[in-house]
């Protein structure tokens, strides 16, 4: 089957790899680049566990055919911490007991990163709307919303 050469900048590094036709960005990140933070919860855009930033916008990476975003800038959870130093969102999730099984966490954090980059001082309702496409089956969401608001406070 003909594969295409795809170039992306992922977490600041230029990457070139082969992708099968109609391969999703999620598959490329995981199978080609070994970046496993984004998770496959449904591969249908209904769970949000694979959310990453493409040119600063949060999208579900399972829904993006990777060859259609040639040369894009992609940011995943692996690119959020500065070495071992967590950023504010990560630290707020950690301190706020906002993770349980952890499977939704990468998507939640990337969605929050995009929200706070665009809107550094979101209201409770704005946080809720931002993560409304991210499913969490464990926590009941309160701690997650609180952690994102906490992260906004820490950045001030």
């Amino acid at each position: 089957m003909p594969s295409s050469v795809v170039n992306l900048t992922v977490n600041g590094r230029e990457q070139e790899f082969l992708a099968r036709p109609a391969e999703s960005l999620l598959t490329s990140l995981r199978d080609r680049l070994g970046l496993m933070a984004a998770k496959r919860g449904c591969a249908q855009g209904s769970c949000g566990t694979c959310t990453v930033l493409v040119d600063d916008k949060p999208v579900m990476s399972c829904l993006v055919a990777v060859e259609t975003i040639e040369a894009a800038e992609v940011r995943t959870l692996e690119g959020v911490a500065d070495g071992e130093r967590l950023d504010e969102v990560q630290q707020a999730f950690l301190d706020g007991f906002a993770t349980q099984c952890g499977f939704c966490t990468a998507g939640m954090i990337m969605t929050a990163e995009a929200l706070l980059a665009e809107n550094p001082d979101p209201t409770h309702d704005e946080v809720v709307e931002a993560i409304s496409g991210n499913v969490c089956r464990c926590t009941g969401y309160r701690a997650i919303v609180a952690a994102i608001l906490d992260a906004a406070g820490r950045r001030k």
Partner: peptide, 15 residues
């Protein structure tokens, strides 16, 4: 602190 939380928030937890 939960012993697994650091892995979760950094995406390093292995599933």
């Amino acid at each position: 602190q939960r012993s697994d939380a650091l892995g979760h928030v950094t995406g390093r937890t292995e599933f």
